[in-house]
Each structure stands twice: as structure tokens, then as C-alpha cells.
């Protein structure tokens, strides 16, 4: 027999006031967004109509892009770096990768790195040279506690060129890496790195990626279950306690899941030696791609050494 209070209706309330999302909600929202982005990236990496970069063998693609990144580190002029950037951007365009997907992930990081890491290199303190912009000039030495300010702080032409080079190199490197991940699924990328020595790490990373989604869904379910039963918002300390308990519960669940996964592996004959089905195919497209990469990298290196080095800047 159900108690009588089960039949009592909840009192009607006025319209809810707008509240800003709490820390937990924001975190979970970001977690859900991460999962969405990852699923989107997987879809882009294996589209219904694959382009040039999608169809290339993952191992060839990984090695060729690593080669291009190494070539970029040997370039000392911004225009030669742009040659490499233009090549990979053209390959991405031919492969029908949306420009938004390509640049969306890192467009904000380039100015940030420029300001935080590269800009100090433009100052006369780090790179002396011809002054372009004077930030301040003091007639006499000024001390701020133990710190002695330099009499003059300027941005130099040589320093600015050095900052531009560092930033462009970073941009090109990230562009290569993003192109690789947008055209290669995570599991293919891991298989590309598979060899006898790396096999245990590849297995662990593959499974970690797989179960990240299971745990993300658990976190989301926990939060939704709490929201569905929350009548009054909790105090910050109560929220922190809730998070602490859920972290503990999640840890316990993940430990049990680990045991079940290991049992499932044993049941299917796993005897401690990871094995994977890898296919390494070098066909005409792969050969043409490798040749194109080598030609572009050689062209950029030659231009950097022979032509650009002779320019006055």
C-alpha cells in the first residue's frame, strides 16, 4: 500500500528566474561538447565520399606529414614556410575538408602564442637590432625594487622577424597535425604507429579512447539523474561534496568495468600478447603523394637557402 503523501500534488510555482549555469553544469556541458566534437571529427575523417588524404594509407600519411613537419623546422624564412602551408591547405581542399573544420580548432592559439611566447623575442632585450617601435626610453636608470629597468625598450626589426618565424612555424606545424587528425581516424592513426615494440601502448590507447565515451556517458547520466531530482540548488560546499562522491563512484565503476573488459578479452583467447590486423598498402596514389611531399619540401628548403637567404631581410 502506498503512503498517502504519494497522492499529494506538488504546489504550483511562479515562472522560474534565470540562473547562471553552475560549475558542474558548465563542466558537463563542455564534456558533452568534447564528445560531440570527437564524433564530428570521426565523421569528417571517414566521410561517405572520401577525398585524396582520406584514402591514403595511414602509415604513409603519418610518416609523410612528420617529414613535412621536420622540414618546416629547417626553414628560416616565413615565405618558405608558407609554401608548405599552401601545399597542405591545397591537399585538404582537394580532399573536401571544410575550411571551418580545419581552422576552427586552432585559430585562437596562433595569436595567443604570438603574444605570450613570440612577442618577447621581438624586444631589443632578446633580439638586439634596428628599432621599429619604441615602447619607452628613460633618461636615467630606474629601479623597481631589485629590478633594474633597461634604459630603452623597443621592438626591433630582427626581433619581429624572429617572432613571425616562430609563430608561422607553429601555425604550419599545427596545420599539418590537424590535417592529419581530420583525415585519419584515431584507430587508424594508432594502427599506423603499431609495431611489435609499440603494440602494448597502442592497445592501451585504443581501449582508453573507446572507454572514454562509456565513462562520459556515465558522467552525463549521473548529472541528468541529479538534475531530474533537484528541487532546490545546493550550496557550493554541497555541490563540491556531490562531485567528490561522484568521482569516487566513477572510479569504482571504471575499476569494475576494467575487470569485465579483461574477462571479455580472456574469454576471446587473449593471452597477454596484443595482436592487430594492420594493412600496409603502397599503391600509385601513395607513391605520388610521397613524391609530391618530397618535391615540395625540397623546393621550400632550396628556396629558403638559395633565394630568400640573399634578401636583405
Amino acid at each position: 500500500m502506498l503512503p498517502s503523501w504519494v497522492a499529494e500534488a506538488a504546489p504550483a510555482r511562479s515562472a522560474p528566474r534565470r540562473r547562471s549555469a553552475g560549475f558542474i553544469q558548465r563542466t558537463l556541458h563542455q564534456t558533452a561538447r568534447f564528445a560531440e566534437h570527437t564524433v564530428f571529427a570521426e565523421r569528417v575523417a571517414r566521410p561517405a565520399r572520401p577525398g585524396l588524404l582520406h584514402t591514403l594509407d595511414a602509415r604513409i600519411k603519418l610518416l609523410s606529414i612528420l617529414g613535412l613537419i621536420v622540414a618546416a623546422t629547417f626553414l628560416h624564412h616565413v615565405p618558405s614556410l608558407w609554401v608548405l602551408a599552401a601545399f597542405i591547405a591545397a591537399a585538404a581542399a582537394v580532399s573536401r575538408i571544410p575550411a571551418r573544420a580545419l581552422f576552427h580548432r586552432f585559430w585562437w592559439s596562433v595569436p595567443l602564442v604570438f603574444v605570450i611566447a613570440a612577442l618577447p623575442a621581438a624586444l631589443n632585450l632578446v633580439t638586439p637590432g634596428d628599432s621599429l617601435l619604441t615602447i619607452y626610453r628613460l633618461d636615467e636608470a630606474v629601479r623597481l625594487g631589485r629590478l633594474q629597468l633597461p634604459p630603452e625598450l623597443t621592438i626591433t626589426r630582427q626581433g619581429l622577424a624572429s617572432a613571425a618565424l616562430v609563430t608561422t612555424r607553429l601555425f604550419v606545424g599545427v596545420l599539418f597535425a590537424v590535417t592529419l587528425t581530420l583525415t585519419t581516424r584515431w584507430d587508424d592513426l594508432l594502427k599506423a604507429a603499431y609495431c611489435r615494440a609499440s603494440a602494448p601502448f597502442v592497445l592501451i590507447l585504443t581501449m582508453a579512447y573507446r572507454y572514454l565515451f562509456v565513462l562520459l556517458r556515465t558522467v552525463e547520466d549521473m548529472h541528468l539523474a541529479k538534475r531530474a531530482r533537484t528541487i532546490l540548488p545546493g550550496t557550493p560546499s554541497a555541490e563540491r561534496r556531490w562531485i567528490g562522491r561522484r568521482v569516487g563512484a566513477l572510479f569504482s565503476r571504471s575499476r569494475h568495468l576494467t575487470e569485465r573488459v579483461y574477462s571479455a578479452m580472456l574469454a576471446r583467447g587473449y593471452r597477454g600478447e596484443p595482436k592487430a590486423l594492420t594493412a600496409f598498402h603502397l599503391e600509385g596514389t601513395e607513391a605520388a603523394w610521397v613524391l609530391a611531399c618530397a618535391a615540395v619540401a625540397s623546393l621550400a628548403l632550396l628556396a629558403d637557402r638559395l633565394l630568400l637567404a640573399k634578401l636583405p631581410w
Binding site: W186, D187, M207, Y209, R210, Y211, A264, M265
Partner: peptide
């Protein structure tokens, strides 16, 4: 296994 998430551990 009843728990298919435990059984399907590959990518």
C-alpha cells in the same frame, strides 16, 4: 557477456 560495452573493447 551481458554487458556489451565490456565485450566490445576495440576501436
Amino acid at each position: 557477456f551481458q554487458d556489451t560495452d565490456a565485450m566490445l573493447f576495440s576501436a
